[in-house]
Design a protein around this nucleic acid. Structure first.
Lengths: 258, 258
DNA sequence: TCGCCTGTTCGGTATTGCGGAACTGCGTTC
DNA sequence: GAACGCAGTTCCGCAATACCGAACAGGCGA
């Protein structure tokens, strides 16, 4: 494990989470490293375009190079490239926004976002991260993970984002069991009040979950109306299966049992 | 300059450009570093989620952590956050897609993309990079850069992406002069056949160019029709000025002379 | 004007990362 | 089906390299 690289990434992470603009001194004490060391790391990162320095204040902030790399990641993400057409189809079939996501640590990372067809202002959610247990996408993925991994996630931190977030491991485990039974997961305003979601897992040729696809929208559209919910659930599951097959998942894997 | 960090970034860059999947050996000889060294770097990057390993082939590819960081960069980008509403307004006023971009080295980096209102399939271009001299956004920015910087860019590599790309420094310099005169830049299928653009520079409170905003669309919509072109140019320039003012640029800076 | 806070530079120390050589496991070839 | 070759991986000794204490420079506020 290369120490300086590890520290450099910590610097980037700190800039990403703590604040847009951080000074050398502040960074140094945050990550517990001497000031000149942090300075050297920053200079290196700056020369690579991953960090830039505010000319006026002297403080540092994230650089454009990160966006290029992030975008390059998206291109390598086979799930994303394959899902584009399916996501569009699902969006126009359901009339709702469609998200495609993968699991990164204990968060769900949105890698594709198809806008709701009849949309007013909609902000792009690609790159957004959400705790796995507060969204349908996360539950859909985790339900089909190897058992140890599931246990680890259930045992980890489970923050509450809204009053409706479920933070009890036992209750979540039961939900996951249910997901395995019906092949899709639900979310009822657990990450944001007013928003709900329905998602199904996507598998690859090795038979493992690689991510999930699902609709996201106002509770009234997605969950409240019983018949609409049924319709959406069927559509989501169907699209997820087709997408899985396109990724090489054969029958006999978890998705066909669902 | 921290050597290992520099090398780690080179690894990421290589993965981003050369191919989605690269092996340790291949990476090692590409960047001219011993195999075990590259391996250590990869393991570190992997533990940070910036790189992942394809379990089947053993080869390495970019990881999801990069997308998170890239997204964090976007949030720090004041130009982007401020431009969202202006971009939407411009898109609906012109009926074309609107891009907002900054300059990163000798490439333009798209930081915001407002879709064309009446749109069929449109792919999101946020994160895309284009050589500065083959798009209106790039010319709009470079035209207002300090002279040494301009000279350096004109003296650098000027690849041709289409048959219409302008690769001659003198011709480009003349175009830049023109941009300074009229306050907007044009592109006629210089980065992609069939596509044209009109863009104006955006300034911040220090009076320096921070980026550009402009419309992008089929030549027939954007350039061919003389009256439409005029209308678009006026709209773009106006929005760029308003955006600049919102960022704190005062009168008396370059933009008000344009 | 002074003091205190930044970001920055310097250079010695030993930690740390580096790479040659050897290992392992897979796919391919004969 | 055994032998080869090439991949990713591990080990370990050397010394290059990154780290940090201390001192410097520049700006802001008091």
């Amino acid at each position: 494990m290369v120490q300086s690289v590890h520290r450099a990434v910590r610097v980037l992470r700190e800039l990403a989470t703590a604040g847009p603009r951080l000074g050398v001194t502040e960074l140094a004490e945050r990550i517990g490293v001497a000031k000149p060391t942090v300075h050297a790391l920053l200079r290196t990162l700056e020369s690579e375009g991953l960090v830039r320095q505010d000319r006026e204040t002297g403080k540092y902030l994230l650089g454009p190079g990160l966006l290029q790399l992030g975008n390059a990641y998206l291109d390598t993400q086979e799930l994303r490239t394959r899902s584009v057409t399916w996501a569009d189809a699902l969006a126009s079939r359901t009339g709702e926004a469609v998200w495609v996501a993968v699991l990164a640590d204990d968060h769900v990372l949105v890698v594709h976002h198809a806008f709701r067809p009849e949309g007013a202002v909609q902000i792009l959610e690609v790159g957004a991260t959400i705790p796995w247990h507060t969204c349908a996408l996360g539950k859909a993925i985790v339900a089909f993970l190897p058992e140890e991994r599931q246990a680890a996630l259930l045992g980890g931190e489970l923050p509450r984002l809204t009053g409706r977030s479920v933070a009890d491991p036992a209750a979540l485990a039961e939900q996951l069991e249910q997901v395995r039974g019906i092949g899709y997961a639900l979310e009822d305003q657990e990450s944001a009040l007013g928003d709900a979601g329905i998602a199904s897992p996507v598998f690859d040729r090795s038979g493992e979950v690689v991510g999930a696809i699902g609709v996201v929208g106002p509770v009234e559209h997605v969950l409240t109306d019983e018949t609409a919910r049924r319709k959406h659930a069927v559509a989501v599951r169907e699209v997820a299966r087709n997408l899985s097959r396109e990724l090489g998942a054969g029958r006999g894997t978890a998705w066909s049992e669902a």
